[in-house]
Structures are given as C-alpha cells and as structure tokens.
C-alpha cells in the first residue's frame, strides 16, 4: 500500500470538503474490506483517505410509512438482523445472506457494497479497469473470462459488477441519495450504475467529491420478492450469477414484475423482456422458465463463460418461483 494521509470527519459536509476533484486524490473509507485490498494490490493509490464512519447521520436502518431508509453506513449484518427488512423485503435479506462471512458482514457497509470495484482478475493484477495489455488490446475476450460478463459485454468493459445487494434493491425500486459540494442528489439506483468507457471511469454515477448517504426503498405492500444466487461454496464466495425478482401481485396474478440479474454484466442487469412476460399471469414453472429464457435473450458468451448463460437463466427462473412462494426457497 502506498502512503496516504487520513482524516475522519464527523459531518457529511466536512467529508465532501476533504474529498478531491479527481479519483487519485482521495478515496472514501467505509467498511474497508474492498478499498484496502484495492490499495494493497495497487489498483488505487489515493493520496488521502476520508473515513466516513464517524458521520452519525449516515448510520441506521428505519422502516416507516414511506418505506425503508438504509443509511450508507448500515452494515450488511444490520441489514440481515433487521426484522422489518426480512419480513417485507426477503429479496434483500436473501442477497445479504449470500455474503457468508460474518466478518465481511460486520465491517461491510451498504454504501461500500454498492460502490465496490470489480473483482476481474486482470483488473486486480494491474491491467487496468478495462484489462488491456501494453498495446491497449483487451485481455478478457481471448483470455480466461470464466467469471466475466455475458450481457453488456460488447466492450470495452467485460467485468461483472460485484454487488450482491444492488439487484435486489433495484428490483424493489430503490433510490439512492448522494451528497456532494452542491448538496443532495437523488436518483434511481438503477441509474446510479454505469458502464465505464475508459479505464479512468468508475462503475457508478458518483463523482470523486460525492458520497452515498442513503438508500430509499419504497413500501413493498403486495410485493413478493426473492433473490436466488448460484454460488459454488458456502464459504465466502462470489456468485456466478444471481437474480432478484419483485412481483407486484394482484391476487395470484402478477401485475408488474421487476427482474434484475447480478454478476452477469458490468452493471446490475434489468431483464425487461422477461418482466413483460410475467405481467398479468399467474406464476407457473412454465412462465418462470420462459422468463428465464427471455432474460438471457441478448446474452453473448465470451470464449469460456457460456455456462453462465445457463446459470443466469436458472437463477431467474428459481428467483421467480421463490418470490411467488413468498420468498421461500
């Protein structure tokens, strides 16, 4: 890790003032589980670290009439332990359960989980976010891409977004609030995620001098939700594909469906076609399977990740069936 200076402000105003106008000036430290690894691997080398954990207003989870407010500093463990969340938003709880390390859950924050950087092994080995060789040629399409993107992978980004919570939150219609020098910005979480076009871009709409302050999830009355992860190990492991599904029900028929896949694309991936096929239908094995197929309609495998198409189809199918059963597996 390269040397840096460290500050630990107590208000969000102080925090953003301490941040820089470019990414190499400063990084936000929250849980630290990803950031410190990135710094040890030399993927980022900020001159200053701004620890936001002492900013009290960023903490806490509250459920009320307007839905759910998750402070950016709420930990994954707090999310898991929150009864209101598991009762009304099983998709979120199930996504959090997939992060099987209690240590990561205790340190890791929601804000950090959404802003974590790709686990692409070329990126982590120092080939840059877009993983190119010295001549600028991309390494992923002809390299070992077994864990890379099957959707949105026309380039130049081939990695998958690593967030486990984002698909669930997007499926449930969450918004994200950011705070920067110009005050508060709010946007759909779906729009928060972006696909980088250059190696200096990031994977979110966050600017270098902004922080995530909270996530707002609307009430889930009449909504059935679930997350299904295809993950190899019970030990801490990255999913190979995930799907989160939220079904607004009218009786036993789906009124509106939202389906979001994770670990399949450089950003959480909304499956619009699949959502439409569920509308006004009762959930059956056949409908769920059809949705799974449609969800992967535009998928393109790289040289050795074709199997992920199958995994994502299964994840979508199983998440839909789970959601219809009220979030039970």
């Amino acid at each position: 890790m390269r040397a840096f200076e460290y500050a630990s402000p107590t208000t969000k105003e102080q925090a953003v003032s301490l941040l820089g106008n470019s990414w190499d000036e400063a990084e936000v430290l929250a849980g630290g589980t990803d950031l410190l690894s990135l710094m040890k691997d030399g993927c980022v080398a900020p001159k200053r670290l701004v620890n936001i954990k002492e900013i009290r207003e960023l903490r806490g989870i509250s459920a009320g009439g307007g839905g759910l407010r998750i402070g950016a500093l709420a930990t994954i463990q707090e999310l898991l332990d929150n009864r209101a969340v598991s009762r009304a938003y099983p998709a979120i709880t199930q996504a959090a359960e997939g992060i099987t390390s209690p240590q990561i859950r205790s340190l890791g924050t929601i804000g950090g989980e959404l802003c974590q950087r790709p686990r692409c092994w070329y990126y982590r080995a120092g080939y840059g976010l877009l993983a190119t060789d010295e001549q600028g040629e991309p390494l992923v399409p002809s390299g070992d891409n077994r864990y890379h993107a099957i959707l949105g992978n026309a380039g130049p980004a081939y990695f998958v977004h690593a967030s486990s919570l984002a698909p669930a939150l997007i499926a449930l219609g969450a918004k994200v609030r950011l705070f920067g020098p110009d005050g508060v910005r709010e946007m759909w979480l779906d729009q928060f995620f972006t696909t980088p076009l250059t190696a200096d871009d990031r994977e979110t709409a966050l600017k270098p001098n902004e922080i995530v302050t909270e996530i707002i999830v609307p009430t889930a009355l009449g909504v059935k939700s679930a997350t299904y992860e295809v993950r190899q190990r019970e030990a801490l492991d990255w999913p190979l594909a995930t799907a989160s599904v939220a079904l607004s029900m009218s009786g036993d028929r789906v009124r509106v469906a939202r389906i979001v896949m994770g670990h399949v694309a450089p950003r959480p991936w909304r499956a619009a076609e699949a959502e439409q096929v569920l509308a006004e239908k009762a959930v059956t094995e056949e409908v769920a399977q059809k949705a799974g197929e449609l969800a992967l309609n535009g998928a393109n495998s790289l040289s050795r990740n074709g199997y992920k198409i199958q995994l994502a189809r299964v994840a979508v199918k199983r998440a839909i069936l789970m959601a219809a059963r009220g979030g039970r597996g």
Binding site: A3, E5, Y6, A7, S8, P9, E13, Q14, L18
Partner: peptide, 15 residues
C-alpha cells in the same frame, strides 16, 4: 488541523 466546512478536522500522516 485543517478547516473544512466550518469545522476543524484533524488530518494524520502520511508519516
């Protein structure tokens, strides 16, 4: 100590 957003914040390091 540096003054940011109307408050004094301590900055440590890099040494």
């Amino acid at each position: 100590t540096i003054k940011v957003a109307g408050a004094e914040v301590e900055v440590y390091g890099p040494g």
